[in-house]
Amino acid sequence: MRQAEEVTFGGSGLDRAAELRGDIPGLAALMQRPGARGVAFWRGKPLIADDAARGETCAGLLRLPLDHPLLGAARARPVLLGREDGEVVLAYDISAWEPDAPQEEGFVDPSVQVHPDAPAGARFVELRTLLMALTPRDAELAATAKAILGWHDTHGFCSRCGVASDVTQAGWQRVCRSCGGQHFPRTDPVVIMLITRGNACLLGRSPGWPEGMYSCLAGFIEPGETVEAAVRREVMEETGVEVGRVALLTSQPWPWPSSLMLGCSGEALSEEITIDPVEIEHAQWVSRERLADAFAGLEPGILPARRGSIANHLLRNWLADRLD
């Protein structure tokens, strides 16, 4: 796929400095340097600020000096994300803070939280709302931090014996203090597929999505299953459509909470749709013309997947005939 690495969170060439994770003295020395920086997260939301320095309305992931008082509210040791220009960048979780503005329920949380110690104009914002606002580097740092902080939040105990585990390797490992079990951040592979038949593609929607929103079908890969087999199984389970040839096109880290989306294309061998209501709410074949109108806002019955998602990326490249 010619546009394979243009997806949001698709990678910015970040130096992840893996050799520092077990080098406690070396990392400690780098954290003492004036150029060391920390990014703050509150319950999965990154601390961002408008990028006024570039005269643009986009947002930027805020990097704070490690002695900044806001980072002092972190409830655990920071996680090493990597290096930028030779200086370390770490993620701090300050989720114990209770703000005046609570989070809101829904597909996307539109609420904003402002910490009293944050720089002027800085606020915690739902990452889903920033998909097209962040630079590739900011997006990679934010996705990495959200995923690994979320893993620590839900994996504090050993899955072998149930005893509390300790954080090691600068946040990239947990070790059980009782049985010695070693645990590493998980990444769940998910297939997301653009299924086509002639001039149409197969789109579906799940309950709870915004009204009219349709996207590519998707599902988790099961143990012992290939990517191709997962595509065929998921499409059959959700819509009853049989799929033949499958191709892997691109991938996207998706930190809700810890997925790796494997973008695929597939050729449908059948057309009749029989949905599984437990899996999806509705599915339909959408022609290129209708999809183009939907992207232009001229098709009121279809709201395509939001920009920045791999589904949007696949659909736009299909319309532009750039999938191969």
Rank of each mutant, 00 (worst) to 15 (best):
A133E: 15
T135S: 15
D138F: 02
E140W: 07
L141K: 12
T144Q: 06
A145R: 05
A145P: 06
K146S: 09
W151E: 04
W151F: 13
W151G: 05
W151L: 10
H155F: 03
G156E: 13
F157N: 11
S159H: 13
R160V: 11
C161H: 06
G162V: 05
A164L: 11
A164F: 06
S165Y: 00
S165R: 03
S165M: 08
V167A: 11
T168R: 13
G171Y: 09
G171L: 14
W172H: 15
R174I: 01
C176M: 05
C176D: 05
R177A: 10
S178N: 14
S178K: 12
C179K: 04
G180H: 06
G181N: 09
H183D: 14
H183M: 10
R186H: 07
R186M: 13
P189Q: 10
V190G: 01
I192M: 08
M193T: 15
L194I: 08
I195T: 15
T196V: 15
R197V: 05
R197T: 09
G198E: 10
C201A: 14
L203F: 06
G204I: 00
S206T: 10
E211H: 09
E211W: 01
G212C: 07
G212M: 09
M213T: 14
M213D: 10
Y214F: 15
C216W: 08
C216N: 14
C216I: 04
A218I: 00
G219P: 02
E222P: 00
P223M: 07
E225F: 07
A229T: 07
V231H: 07
V231G: 04
R232M: 03
R232H: 01
R232F: 02
R233K: 01
R233G: 02
V235F: 03
V235N: 11
E237H: 03
E237W: 05
E238Q: 15
V241K: 03
V241T: 03
V241R: 05
V241S: 01
E242R: 10
G244Y: 04
R245W: 11
R245P: 00
A247H: 12
L249T: 02
L249F: 01
T250R: 07
S251F: 06
S251C: 09
S251P: 00
S251Q: 15
Q252A: 05
Q252V: 09
P253A: 13
P255H: 13
P257Y: 12
S258E: 15
S259N: 15
M261A: 06
M261N: 13
L262N: 04
